[in-house]
Amino acid sequence: MKLRTIALGTLFSLGLVALAVGTLQRREGAAQTQQEGSGALANSAESSALELPSNPGHQPGADSMGGGVYGVVAATPFRLKSGYRHDWSAENPYVSGGWLVVLLVEPSMVHPRQTQEPVLMGGDMPLERINQGELSGHVVAILPAKLDASGLPPALDSIEFYFATPQLPEQLDRSRAAFELERAQQKGTVPFGAESVSEARAVGGQALQLQGRLELIEAAAKWISRFASDEHELAEILSNQRG
């Protein structure tokens, strides 16, 4: 079945959150097997992606559902006056802007474990996951990106979102990231469609002009409260990082 892009409103109308929770319940039984040695995890990024029922309201062929990322729920570009280093890739690129996004993901992909986890990717860049998202299926994440002359990151509908093979993000270098992207593309992962992105942008609100990472995290905390309310404790902690 060809997988389809589903916009935010459609996701909720389809009861996808409930579907995700259902998946989580099924995963409880599978988790033990996955955790019995990391080897069992090796293909989980490919094997555990859900196939959603096709949605006649959307065009086929413009979807990004192949790698455990079901949809983009909210997105806004951000720009920082004072940047920081991105810990989630081997090169530690300097972050002065990018996308703050909320992605709807397959919960088993973000089940916490100490061994290698599937790495959430945006194109050839690992995202920084701010919350767990296991119960809600909603992951608030930061995608660092180069800003263009107008101070904007690359268009969101040009970026594939997917889970790469389990590994440590800080060990994932450019060449490995390129390999993961190519692999995902070969498996049919494509960027979210313009309509999805447009809806997500509408939810995300206006672009963020921030002082630095601290403010970015505070913005992320608000989205955790909104989209992953089970993690309200984390949201509260992230809202109080000023010392």
């Binding site: 990472r213 601290l214 970015l216 995290i217 992320a220 990082q241 000023r242 010392g243």
Partner: peptide, 9 residues
């Protein structure tokens, strides 16, 4: 929270 040192978050 401490005001600096560890990365925000």
């Amino acid at each position: 929270s401490v005001p600096d040192g560890p990365q925000a978050a």
